[in-house]
Amino acid sequence: MKTTAGIVVGFVLSLMLAFAMLAPAGAQGERELHAVNINYEGNNVWTPGTYVVRKGEKVRFKLFNRVKADPNVHGFAIDEFNVKVDVYRDKPETVEFTADKAGIFRIWCHLHPAHLAGQLVVLEK
């Protein structure tokens, strides 16, 4: 009896371990990224400047505006994915979209286009 129970428990644990090894850090096909707006030597910039995802992934950006100087709001936009978010100082925002096309896409501040732009790289699967 004890032997059978041990085999079942061992089998279940092995299965769980196998699934854990196969699964990516987030749920399958999803990617969460953080972008922080800062002022670097007089330039406002989303950092990190480059983000890499795979085509077909559901991308969730968490956005933080940490620029202490005025103005109190900055923009986060990726035109090709219809992303356009106003991010107020110390008021985090979240935006989600599916990266349904591969390529290199500009990330920019639609409110103040002079700010330094970043890029989203979407890899073919």
């Binding site: 007089g42 005025d70 103005p71 109190n72 409110l111 103040h112 002079a114």
Partner: peptide, 12 residues
């Protein structure tokens, strides 16, 4: 200052 209207001195 204190509003969303930025300074454009560096940009323009």
């Amino acid at each position: 200052d204190g509003t969303p209207m930025p300074s454009y001195a560096d940009a323009l």
